[in-house]
Design a protein around this nucleic acid. Structure first.
Length: 252
DNA sequence: AAAGTCCCCAACCGCTGCATT
DNA sequence: TAATGCAGCGGTTGGGGACTT
């Protein structure tokens, strides 16, 4: 019941963009804008590319003020904090990092930060498929049994547990046995408050616009609870969490 | 030096939400 | 109100360089 493809795959060019294509797209958009119609854009320019491909190329590579290269420790920290609180909402996270794209942030998380925080780096370099490697990383939740929660949610639980353990090693024992205790329903206003605060930083941010619905909202709330009361000892605060994130990220 | 393996990242795929008709 | 089409988003893939054996 899928949608019809947005373009004819037989006639559309795919794969890496050539410098000529980049130049054509960049020149056209800089001169006339996108016209709010990505589908029509390649035809106007004379590119044999799908509109979605043009949009992606522009947003992730050609757009002005794109920042390439290494992420700073501050950016690392921002990504981690936002990931823990809102999950894999890459566009929202990227909106808090000027010059970074959602694709960049997503790749950086998947290839660097996740491994650093969850300790997913392989011990041996033996044979294995991409799926195997991914499975090992995601499978940091032991057992390999079917997981009713999203991988993103499980990663956030793991991060919360690691932070809890650092704060209060004794109280964390029960958490390991029952990570789902974090999943206690509560009011959603904590998330909303966080979002509205963040949205002040960037007019482009869709934090207020995004509808955190269904399971996603539940996951967000639960994880926020996990951070808001990370130990039975009492309240944590942002400063503590930031310090511990720094430790997780850079102490190895 | 060669072969095998790992890792990164650009690009693609397909779903969702929103706007329009 | 339902149907349709597009933009935007997150997940996934695969090419190729880097690294290891």
């Amino acid at each position: 019941m899928g949608r019809a493809p947005c373009c004819d795959k037989a006639t559309v060019k795919r794969g890496p963009w050539s410098p000529e294509e980049d130049a054509m797209l960049k020149a056209y958009i800089e001169e006339r804008g996108t016209g709010n119609n990505w589908i029509a854009l390649p035809h106007k320019i004379g590119l044999k590319r799908c509109g979605k491909s043009c949009r992606l190329r522009w947003l992730n590579y050609l757009r002005p003020n794109i920042k390439h290269g290494d992420f700073t420790p501050e950016e690392d920290s921002t990504i981690c904090k936002l990931y823990i609180s809102i999950g894999s909402r890459w566009s929202i996270i990227a909106a808090q990092l000027p010059g970074r794209t959602d694709n960049d942030v997503k790749n950086y998380w998947n290839t660097k930060l996740k491994k650093r925080l969850l300790g997913g780096r392989r011990k041996d370099r033996g044979a294995g498929t991409q799926q195997h490697r991914q499975g090992e990383l995601d499978g940091a939740n032991d057992g390999g049994e079917q997981q009713p929660l999203s991988a993103s949610a499980m990663e956030r639980i793991q991060l919360c547990m690691q932070l809890q353990e650092m704060q209060n090693p004794l109280s964390s024992i029960s958490n390991h046995n029952n990570p789902l205790h974090l999943w206690q329903p509560s009011s959603h206003h904590q998330v909303a408050a966080t979002h509205s605060n963040n949205s002040n930083n960037n007019s482009n941010s869709s934090l207020n616009d995004q509808n955190l619905g269904g399971q996603q909202q539940m996951e967000t709330t639960a994880t926020m609870d996990g951070l808001a009361s990370p130990s039975s000892a009492g309240n944590s605060n942002i400063v503590t969490i930031e310090a511990e994130l720094q430790e997780l990220l850079y102490s190895a």
